[in-house]
């Protein structure tokens, strides 16, 4: 991978911007197109780009495999946990009014934020771990065969 100088330089510049854009899409999803599903994919793409350009070993030092696998499960737990928390506060499952009884639409804001975060974490975790699973196998053909 030594020879792809332009690719490596441009990727280094881009990865930070992609991660930042992912966060923007995640937390601005209430106001503009976007949300957890898109943000999860964009964050995953940043790590996949890093893995493609610098090799699987490098990206797994930044974002180890055990952490990715755990994140995929944590996202679902955050989502379901938001619903269960509402139940403990005396409301229905996934009724976000529980988080701000005096001002229901504020509660909705908090609930949507938490739920979208859960979706984003799961999607990013699953996409990156699927990429690790595919990239971790020995390839059947050499680079010249393409």
């Amino acid at each position: 991978m030594r020879h792809h100088l332009i690719l490596r330089t441009v990727s280094k510049l881009l990865i930070g911007a992609i991660l930042l854009f992912g966060l923007y899409v995640q937390f601005h999803g209430d106001f503009s197109p976007g949300g957890g599903f898109q943000a999860g994919v964009i964050v995953a793409v940043a790590f996949i780009l890093h893995g493609i350009v610098f090799g699987l070993g490098m990206v797994q030092r930044v974002f180890p495999r055990w952490l990715v696998h755990k994140l995929a499960a944590v996202g679902v737990l955050v989502y379901a946990g938001t619903g269960v928390l509402g139940m403990f506060l005396g409301y229905d499952f996934l009724d976000y009014g529980a988080f701000s009884p005096d001002h229901p639409s504020h509660g909705q804001h908090w609930g949507i934020l938490a739920v979208e975060l859960g979706v984003g974490i799961t999607v990013a975790g699953v996409m990156v771990s699927v990429y690790y699973a595919f990239a971790g196998r020995p390839p059947q053909m050499s680079d010249e065969d393409w």
């Binding site: 999803g29 209430d30 106001f31 503009s32 197109p33 976007g34 949300g35 957890g36 996202g75 679902v76 989502y79 379901a80 619903g83 499952f93 996934l94 976000y96 639409s105 504020h106 909705q108 804001h109 609930g111 949507i112 739920v115 979208e116 859960g118 979706v119 799961t122 999607v123």
Partner: peptide
């Protein structure tokens, strides 16, 4: 709901069960 993006409102609040299942 009080947020401008109706798609997000339906996705995360009105149809929260649905999205939990998809996740």
């Amino acid at each position: 709901i009080g947020i401008p993006n109706v798609v997000t409102a339906v996705l995360a609040s009105y149809r929260g069960y649905d999205t939990l299942g998809e996740t």
